[in-house]
């Protein structure tokens, strides 16, 4: 009888409704959806919830991420989150998004801008949209900022994500587009330094192969499968800085814009320095 009781207790325990923080958090998201539950860019709250479950596990248990300064992410209103970019695959974007979804006072869905080739890839084509990502065009970005959404930007772009191990924590040149959008839409910029991603896939750049293929770089990692698909279990540390507000003419020439972009870049660099000084080890 004791065994039957024990089994019964285990079943009751396993089937007891337990708090589901991810579901609560996705419910608390401000989403402008239509009668079928999709927003204008194809984001669906149910699909976001599934994605957050996976990203949340990686965030908490694989990368054991710590986020500092999340109070600088405004709980509502338009904002551009600007970060350094590295690690061969955009796990850094996923971790920043998970932090804002799971650990910020008010959950916010960050929408990041994906490369133009992504819609041509089966499954990625629509999953990226269901999870709230958008095609990286200035029109899309402006429309979302005007709708008071939060957008994640990596101004280093492909130059940053494919950088070799020897260039870790050295920022590649920043694009200027994000600053023009911030000026045009009066959007505050929250700088973020991601510590950890730069070591997750230590790559060397095979320049000869890159030249043969005509790609800007050809990074390989020294362990199977030799491309940075599986990241090392590094510990992520995120440092959010205070919002920066810029004013000026969005159509100014590149020099004037570069000056403002450099200010953001300097702020991220100093956050990186602080983060690197504070951490004891890459993996814990």
């Amino acid at each position: 009888m004791a065994v039957a009781d024990w089994i019964r207790r285990r079943i009751a325990d396993a089937t007891r409704p337990r708090p589901d923080p991810v579901a609560e958090r996705t419910r608390a998201l401000a989403v402008r959806d239509n009668e079928y539950g999709f927003d204008a860019f194809g984001m669906g709250r149910d699909q976001v919830r599934t994605a957050v479950r996976v990203a949340g596990w990686l965030y908490r248990h694989y990368f054991r991420a710590e986020a500092k300064g999340l109070e600088h992410v405004p709980s509502s209103g338009r904002v551009l989150i600007v970060s350094n970019h590295s690690g061969q695959l955009p796990y850094d974007g996923m971790v920043i998004s998970a932090a804002c979804m799971l650990d910020a006072a008010q959950p916010r869905l960050l929408r990041s801008m994906v490369e133009h080739f992504v819609p041509t890839v089966p499954f990625a084509s629509y999953l990226m949209a269901r999870w709230g990502q958008i095609i990286g065009t200035p029109e899309n970005c402006r429309r979302l900022l005007e709708a008071d959404e939060a957008i994640l930007v990596f101004p280093e772009g492909a130059r940053g994500i494919s950088k070799p191990f020897s260039k870790r924590y050295q920022l590649a040149p920043f694009g200027l587009g994000f600053m023009r959008l911030a000026l045009a839409t009066n959007t505050p910029i929250v700088p973020v330094a991601v510590i950890g991603a730069e070591e997750q896939a230590p790559a060397v750049n095979l320049r000869v192969v890159a030249k043969l293929l005509g790609t800007p770089s050809f990074p390989v990692v020294p362990y199977p499968p030799f491309v940075g698909v599986v990241p090392l279990p590094v510990k992520y540390r995120l440092h959010f800085g205070e919002p920066m507000v810029f004013t000026g003419d969005p159509d100014e020439d590149d020099e004037a814009i570069t000056e403002k972009v450099t200010a953001v870049k300097r702020r991220i660099e100093s956050l990186i320095h602080v983060g690197l000084r504070e951490r004891k080890h890459v993996f814990w």
Binding site: A40, V118, I135, T137, E139, N140, R143
Partner: peptide
């Protein structure tokens, strides 16, 4: 087109 903005004017 794959690179269309979500809403064309």
């Amino acid at each position: 087109r794959p690179d269309n903005p979500q809403f064309l004017s």
